[in-house]
Amino acid sequence: MASSRDRQRKLAREKLERQKARRAVKERRTRRIRAGVGAVLAVLVIAGGVAWLGGAFDRDPPADPAADDICAWTPQSTSTTPELKDVGTPPTDGIATSGTREMKVVTSQGTIAASLNLGTAPCGGESMSYLAGKKFYDNTECHEITAFGALRCGDPSGTGRGGPTYTFYNEDVPALPTPGPSASAAPPPAAPAYPAGTVALISDPPGNNGSQFLVFLKDYSPKDQALYPIHGKVTTGQDVLATLIL
Results as ranks from 00 to 15, higher is better:
G49A: 09
A66R: 00
A2E: 15
A63M: 05
W52N: 04
R34F: 03
T235N: 09
I95W: 07
P122T: 14
S182V: 10
V87C: 13
A196L: 01
R9P: 04
Q109N: 04
Q76V: 08
P205Q: 01
F148S: 14
G119D: 12
P179N: 08
E171Y: 05
A35E: 15
V50L: 02
R161V: 07
S115E: 12
A226E: 05
Q238V: 06
T111Y: 07
L201S: 13
D64Q: 05
G149L: 04
N117I: 10
G38H: 02
D155I: 04
S108M: 00
R29Q: 15
L201N: 09
R32Q: 13
K20Y: 09
L118C: 07
L241K: 02
D6H: 14
P61Y: 00
F148D: 07
V215W: 01
G54D: 11
G99Y: 11
S108N: 09
A35F: 02
F136K: 06
A196W: 00
R18E: 14
N209T: 06
L131H: 07
V43D: 06
P122W: 11
C153H: 04
R152L: 14
E144R: 10
N209I: 02
K85R: 15
S157K: 14
I95P: 03
G119N: 13
P189L: 10
P205Y: 00
P122I: 12
M1W: 15
G38F: 00
Q76T: 09
L176P: 08
H143M: 03
L11G: 02
R59A: 08
A63C: 07
M103E: 06
G163Y: 03
P222T: 04
L201G: 11
S127G: 13
T198Q: 06
G94W: 03
S98C: 14
R7L: 15
I46G: 01
